[in-house]
Amino acid sequence: MSKSLKTLSDDLWKNRVEKVNSELFTLTYGSLVAQLCRDLNYNYAEVNAHLEKMGYNIGLRLVEEFFAQTNLGRCQTFRETAEVVAKVGFRMFLNVVPQVVGVDEKQFSLVLDENPLAEFVELPDDGKAFKELWYSNVLVGVLKGALEMVQLEVNAFFVSDVLRGDDTTELKVKLVQVLKDEIPVGED
């Protein structure tokens, strides 16, 4: 199963994804975070929330392109979801493959060895940022939005971030509930 996902994502990356240098992406994201911090008066909790909301909107869209390009159907288990998200999803959009750890039917963690959002980034030295700002919080939103489109309501959050001085960058995803498919009014 993993082998075929890897071949799929390699093939996708080589043939079906239009590529661009990641620098513009990193710089743009950095500019965005900086501007958000200024606009919200360095209230990092609000910055985190804002980044998550933006990520949510992105996730709603990104998932359509994912299905269009991969032609995969919905996953049968949460474990499978974790594998697909890491090996195909992240590869397709960020060209990185996070490690999947701590998987069971209710949660999984993604450990990012490389984070293109945060290349050459340093958190501001104001004493608060290290404790309060999750720089890449947009990823949290993307996962929430994308998984909601496949009827999985999840809670996602960063556990650690190398920008804060931690050893790894780890994102945890917890399943809250499986949403029912909507049925038209009048049907049972």
């Binding site: 994804v17 661009v20 240098n21 960020l94 060209n95």
Partner: peptide, 9 residues
Amino acid sequence: KHDISLSSL
């Protein structure tokens, strides 16, 4: 050079 998907941008 590290490439990324144009869509992400």
